[in-house]
């Protein structure tokens, strides 16, 4: 990684950290001083906490790279390796297709069930929660399986 790129990434980390702190402070102060706001100030504070976390992560990553350039070079190469990126992209594409199929299946199930039996709902409250969990877990499994499958192919 070039020194200028490293410097830019560290600056971005500091900016995210400072921005996060500002948002957190703004959210907290707005909650104290202007309690009747239409927008809940806790949302601003939450965005600040997330931005602060992103900044910390960014700084930790690139400061370690700066401090141990030889050791981290291999890690960066592994991370940016084009074959590894190709494998990740293929696995992500597979997981996306699984998500789309699952979503369309749920819609079709609901629509046809409503047409055939308007009194009942196909995805009722009992089924909706497990289905939503499956919508997260199954694509994740497809992604992991895709990584293994494409690693053996490429």
């Amino acid at each position: 990684m070039k020194a200028s790129e490293l410097k830019t990434q560290i600056t971005l980390g500091w900016l995210a950290l400072a921005g996060g702190l500002l948002l957190l402070a703004a959210g907290s102060l707005l909650r104290l001083w202007m309690p009747g706001l239409a927008l809940d100030p806790r949302l601003i504070a939450a965005a600040g906490i997330i931005l602060f976390g992103v900044g910390i992560g960014q700084l930790a990553k690139y400061m370690i790279i700066k401090k141990y350039p030889k050791d981290t070079r291999q890690i960066v190469i592994e991370e940016q390796d084009e074959r590894a990126q190709t494998i990740r992209l293929h696995a992500a594409s597979l997981a996306f297709r699984v998500t789309v199929v699952a979503a369309v299946a749920a819609l079709l199930l609901t629509v046809f069930n409503n047409l055939l039996n308007p009194a009942s709902t196909a995805l009722n409250a009992d089924l909706l929660w497990p289905y939503q969990v499956a919508m997260v877990v199954v694509p994740m499994l497809a992604y992991i399986g895709g990584l293994a499958w494409y690693s053996s192919r490429f």
């Binding site: 190469i77 592994e78 940016q80 390796d81 084009e82 074959r83 590894a84 490429f154």
Partner: peptide
């Protein structure tokens, strides 16, 4: 600047 696995493949 690639991994050894890439060279193998």
């Amino acid at each position: 600047a690639v991994s050894r696995q890439t060279i193998i493949s």
